[in-house]
Design a protein around this nucleic acid. Sequence first.
DNA 1: CTGGGGATGGGGCCC
DNA 2: CGGGCCCCATCCCCA
Length: 546
Amino acid sequence: MDWRSVTACGVGCGSRAFPPSLPSRHLFDHQATIASVRVAMSPGEDGLIGIPFPEHSSEILSRLNAQRRAGLLCDLTLTSRGARYPTHRSVMAAVSLYFRRLFGAEEGEEGGEGVSSGCSVCQLDCVAPDALDALLEFAYTATLTIRSSGMREVLKGAQLLGIQCVADACRDILGESGEDVDQEGFEEAERASRRKRDRRHVNKAGSPVRPAWKSTQQESTPPSASPRPEYGLPHTPGREELPPVAGQNGETLGAHQRAMVNGGPHWTQMGALHPPSHTGDGLSEDDQKSEGATGVSTPPSTALGGPIGSGTAGPGGRKRKSQTPQQCPVCQKIIHGAGKLPRHMRTHTGEKPFQCSACGVRFTRNDKLKIHMRKHTGERPYPCPDCPARFLHSYDLKNHLSLHSGARPFECPLCHKAFAREDHLQRHRKGYSCLELRTRRPRRASGLGPGEAGGCGPSTATGTLLYHQDPDSPRLPMQGLPLLGPRLHYHHSLLWMGAEAQSTRGRGEGEGAPSPRPAQPPLGPGWDDEEEEDDEEDEEEEECLG
DNA sequence: CTGGGGATGGGGCCC
DNA sequence: CGGGCCCCATCCCCA
């Protein structure tokens, strides 16, 4: 376990539906996690350990809701036309941009003004009581439960309070574009950056016609009792709503603009500051750009997490690709293949439903558990035909076979060191070793122009060097060497040291299997080769792409 | 720094 | 359409 899992859990904790019986499930998961940590930890290890608690945010929200219903710890009362709704200020600030600004909870704001300290009653007569109740339920349950007849009131309330995802969901249901009903014009800019994301939340694995949440919106069951689709995770405040949008859009609002009085927000004022987007589809230009940047062209009607694209592979096409791509509502990544989105979502939620019966280690995927079980059964289904080595994974065998063949098809374009594995080449290029090696080769000053000398210096460590090879010499060793002046001799020596290290490293190593590395790798030019052809390469031209 | 094993996540194919 | 199975790319860890 590493911090990646912790981060993923932190992102995704809010996505889980409220477990009806929190303790048992949670205890089970927790203990299993502890067990897996014990397995993963080596004795004496003092590293950071991340233990995911996928149910945590759901628990928190559930208990907050219980407190709200019991009137416990409520520090804010919302009123609408005589109806009173005790609630928690922090929750409302988390879910509503209006309250965030009202309480000065936006990032970068120095505390709240006025109401943040003393006001405990906020009169919202402009929001219908039923709508306000529904929005409160949403805030505490991440589920919006409303009647179709009340949809418009909820939409209005969501707009007024700056609960964007709810407003978008209502608009989708009503089949309206944002401009049609967004009379208040509140936070249009914010919506532009978030509409696509939030609407995708409410549409699970992809039905643009019938969003996942639609089944609940016509039922009158309490939100807490209505099952929420796992991936719809539409509006978990702790997940997408909580991060304030300050710093993105709407941050130009001054203190006086968010100094709402108890009589209700006057968002028309805000609308004047944030004129609605004029883009035809309701997406801001930035939004459109971002979509274009991701290569996803999603018209609004299909940008709901439903199928991305037509499913046809396009003209050049790979073969049949009927499995419609879907976009992850959390990371916006396009997931190809039917049924793959749930699998992907578990990377965010940290959910690992597949547990090893032998050691308790949990996995996000069944096929990974299956492979893991081979460790317990001793099964190594991928034997090397040339040696007794056997492997758990087919790709391990593939890597291993490259040892037998000596093939090193992955060559560094900078130093031309060849690797048997692509990831080793990548690692090599990411590190500094490549630059060092690159500077180790001496090069005559006569073969380089002034621009080459300057352009390929250490400052271009991450650059790519292109070389023109002699057509008669297909494997000319090519080095991109900056002019190093008096350091040439030093680096020349280093080169030979490196060559010796290359020729001696790895001998006698091996993980049980012989390591028949050839003295001269057939593909990658050995260092000796480079020395022999050193004169030839002086004729090469090189250019640095930076 | 490199080689190697293992883990993780995504995509393709198929049922 | 969901899921199983497999392959692949990439990353991490360790020697």
